[in-house]
Computed example of a mutant assay.
Amino acid sequence: MDNQNETQVTVTNNEEVKNEEVKQDDTASTGTPDLSKMSEADKRAFFAEELKNSAIENQFGKTETIVVNEGTKYQYHMILAFPGTAIASQIEDDATTDATGNVDFTRLMQGAVDNGVISFPQVKSLDFWNYHKGYSEVAAKVLKFLNDGLAGNLE
């Protein structure tokens, strides 16, 4: 049993050394080795390590505070919360009107309200903006926020 464990460690260490040699010898300026010179097993090991190293912090639930009508007597703050990739993508898909990518802001904002993207204040309907200035400003900021979350750029 101990010999099997030692052998496994030795094989893993040899593969790591082999992968490191490939990286040093065949790495293009992008940092990717010449995949055509790698075995399928080595490719998978390289891809698995690359995938592990490319992970970002979970975007779900990340928040951003926005200021609406900044510097005016109508200024107010809102907190946006990222609803996750699937919901954010669906909100944007539902609000995209045609192949040119035009956005229907009513659909975008209704999707944001329905899915809790505006987490504070708790907006229940688009009628909120019958009593508050800044609907178009908020819509633009919501779209940017969703795009940032989909791109993995929320901190």
Rank of each mutant, 00 (worst) to 15 (best):
M1N: 09
M1R: 08
M1S: 14
D2E: 13
N3L: 15
Q4C: 11
N5V: 06
N5I: 07
E6D: 13
T7L: 15
V9C: 04
T10K: 10
T10E: 11
T12G: 00
T12F: 11
E16F: 07
V17E: 11
K18Q: 13
K18S: 13
N19W: 03
V22H: 11
V22Q: 08
K23R: 06
A28L: 10
A28T: 08
A28Q: 03
A28R: 02
A28V: 03
T30A: 09
G31Q: 02
T32A: 12
P33V: 04
D34G: 04
L35M: 15
S36H: 07
K37H: 10
S39D: 11
A41K: 09
A41V: 11
D42Q: 15
D42H: 07
A48T: 10
A48Q: 08
K52P: 03
A55G: 08
I56P: 00
I56R: 14
E57L: 12
N58K: 14
N58P: 09
F60R: 03
F60A: 08
F60K: 09
V67C: 02
V67G: 00
V68R: 02
E70G: 15
T72F: 07
K73A: 14
H77E: 15
I79R: 06
L80Q: 00
A81Q: 13
A81H: 02
P83F: 00
G84E: 02
T85D: 13
T85I: 09
A86M: 07
I87K: 10
I87E: 07
D93S: 09
D94E: 11
A95H: 01
A95L: 03
D98N: 14
T100L: 13
G101H: 04
V103M: 12
D104I: 05
F105W: 05
T106S: 13
R107V: 11
R107N: 09
L108H: 02
L108S: 03
M109Q: 03
A112N: 04
A112S: 11
D114Q: 10
N115K: 06
V117H: 02
V117Y: 01
I118C: 04
F120N: 15
V123A: 04
S125H: 09
L126D: 08
L126Q: 15
D127F: 07
W129K: 05
N130R: 08
Y131A: 09
Y131R: 05
K133M: 11
S136R: 08
S136C: 02
S136W: 01
A139V: 00
A140P: 02
K141D: 03
L143V: 00
K144T: 10
K144V: 06
K144H: 00
L146N: 01
D148A: 12
G149W: 00
A151F: 05
A151V: 02
G152Y: 05
N153Q: 13
E155R: 03
